[in-house]
Each structure stands twice: as C-alpha cells, then as structure tokens.
C-alpha cells in the first residue's frame, strides 16, 4: 500500500498534463458546440424558408377552391386537403383496430412468440413506404383494374397503404404506453375476480387513455405527410369526386375513384415550371405542416391530461 503522495498545491502551476487535457477539453467541447450550431443553423434555414416562402404564398382560395387551370393564381387545393382527411379516415379504420388490439396482445402475451411479433413489428416499421405503395398497387389496384378496366386507382387503395403503415406504429406505441400502467393496478382488478378483457377495458385502457390517443395522433401525423405510397394508389385528382346517394338528396365522396392528397399535390406542383404553381406548392407545404403540427400538439395535450390524472 502506498503512502499518500507529497501534497501538491491547488493554486500552484498546473502540470503539463493538466494544461494539455484542459485544452483538449475546450477544443472537443467547442467542436460539439459547433456541430450543434451547424445542425440548428441548417434546420433553422429549412424552417425559415418554409415559413417565409409558404406564408407569402398563402391565401384563402387555397382552402375554398379546387385548382384553376385558366387563372392559376385563383385556384386552390381544397380537394387535396379533403382527400388527405378522407385517406386518414380510411387508414384509421384499418390501422387503429389492428394496431391497438395487437398492442394489447403484445402487452398480455409473454414468451418467444410475443417477442417474435415485436421484432417483426419493428421490421414492418422499417419497410420503406414506397414498397408499401407497390404492395397496395399489386394487391388492390392491379386486380381491380384487371376486373374492371379503367378503374383501380382509388381512395380505398391509398387508405389501405397508409393503414398498413399505421399498424406497426400504433402497435408499438400502444404496447409501450400500456406497459406504463402499473402492474399492481391490473393485479388489483384481476384479484377481484375480473376477467382479463374486463380488466383491460375498464382499468388498463382508461388509465392509459391519454397515452394511447397520443400514439394514434402521432401515427396520423406521420402518415399525413406520406407521398410515396400514394403515387401508385390514388393517382391524384383536380376535382371533388362525389356521387349522389339517397335518391339525389345527398352527395358523398366517391371512394372508388382517384382522389387527391396534399403531399401528392405539393409534389406535382413542385415539378411544375409555372412559378404560381410552385408558390402554391410552398403554401400547400405550410398547410400540410400545420395539419401535422396540430395533430402533434393535440397528442401532447392528450398525454399531459393523462399525466395529471395519474398524479
């Protein structure tokens, strides 16, 4: 065992080693700061141009009128906004039940099979959305077009593709959120003789309600901006497609015909040489991001409410 070393002075001159290490410290930490500065600068530039170009092109007719091919400036993209909402609705019909129920299964089940499901949920989550688009084309658009020439591209196909994208996201977040509900709460309910589904329905799900809603909102926010899977499924449209029901008393959107979507419209206009169209693409981008932002902020509020309940 060594004897304590001779006392050095705290205030005296630092040894060369310490000076070098302190210099290295300053240099490396500055580099990190530089990296952060660069990242924030570039990301800030993205946001800056988006807002400046988008807001300068934003006007009311965007929300009230479909595209106008004669007087381009007067045109809007209401059919795209409407189409995106329709697609989100169809996607939810497929993605939410599968995602939430599957997430519940992953919470309840244990063992090898459950972890295999979890693994493949991640795999499905990592599949590029354009591949899902091709899948939807091959599974829905193509067979329909074979059976009824001239049809095929439809809101159903697009909603199907987006719904598939939703399933793994919702499944994972649902499971993770439900896992946060204390196990004791479940045990308490089961201990009273409640069945498993009753426990889930009346105890676990209500406790995790905010979190589950958050997961849904974030999944919707994610698919609202998807373009690639829509290229081969909805085709895009410049009109409202509606048809009469109830003997002509009401008009409902036609879902088995091509439909438009905001991200697709932005893409098409970005490829247009007309500067007015390009301006509308920027404005559309602001609308799309606002929609996503609203969903994300709603998600945040849903969680906050939940956390307060638990406290």
């Amino acid at each position: 065992m060594s004897v304590a070393p001779p006392h050095s002075s705290l205030l005296g001159k630092q040894s060369g080693n310490v000076a070098r290490r302190k210099a290295q410290n300053v240099v490396m930490l500055s580099l990190c700061m530089l990296a952060a500065g660069l990242a924030i600068l570039v990301l800030g530039l993205v946001l800056f141009f988006l807002l400046s170009k988008g807001f300068s092109s934003l006007h009311l007719s965007l929300f009230t009128r479909p595209p106008d091919n004669i007087d381009i400036k007067k045109g809007g993209m209401i059919q795209s906004i409407f189409g995106t909402l329709v697609l989100l609705g169809i996607a939810s019909c497929l993605g939410l039940p599968l995602g939430i129920l599957g997430g519940i299964y992953q919470l309840e089940a244990k063992g090898k099979f459950a972890s295999t499901v979890r693994f493949f949920t991640d795999v499905l989550n990592g599949i590029p959305s354009i591949v899902i688009g091709i899948f939807a084309y091959a599974a829905i658009v193509y067979p329909v077009a074979q059976a009824h020439p001239g049809t095929g591209f439809s809101a159903y196909a697009g909603g199907f593709a987006l719904g598939i994208l939703m399933v793994p996201t919702v499944m994972r977040t649902t499971e993770e959120i439900l896992r946060l509900v204390p196990f004791a709460l479940r045990e308490a309910s089961l201990g009273l003789g409640a069945t498993r589904w009753r426990t889930m329905w009346s105890v676990v799900l209500p406790a995790a309600r905010g979190g589950v809603i958050t997961g849904i909102m974030l999944a919707l926010a994610r698919i609202a901006g998807e373009t690639a899977p829509l290229l081969f499924t909805i085709l895009g449209s410049e009109y409202f497609s509606t048809h009469a029901v109830l003997g002509g008393h009401a008009h409902v959107p036609t879902l088995n015909a091509p439909i438009d979507a905001l991200p697709l419209r932005i893409y098409n206009y970005s490829q247009d040489v007309n500067p007015d169209r390009q301006a509308q693409a920027w404005a559309g981008a602001v609308v799309l991001i606002s929609l996503i932002l609203v969903l994300s902020i709603a998600a945040r509020f849903a969680t906050r409410g939940n956390m307060q309940e638990e406290k």
């Binding site: 599968l98 129920l101 493949f120 599949i127 399933v167 069945t195 889930m200």
Partner: peptide, 30 residues
C-alpha cells in the same frame, strides 16, 4: 365471462398476427 376472455384472447392474437400476414402477403405479391 370466460367465453369473453377467450374471444378477447383470440381477437388480440389475430390482430398481432396481422403483422405476419402483412409481411407474408407483401412478400407474396412482390
């Protein structure tokens, strides 16, 4: 009630199976 639990187990199990169904279906189509 226990029948309910069985249905509950089966439905959630099928929902989680959808992952495999989607992946296999996708592979089959492509």
């Amino acid at each position: 009630a226990r029948f309910g639990d069985k249905i509950y187990g089966a439905v959630t199990f099928l929902a989680s199976l959808s992952i495999f169904i989607i992946i296999l279906w996708l592979l089959y189509q492509l």
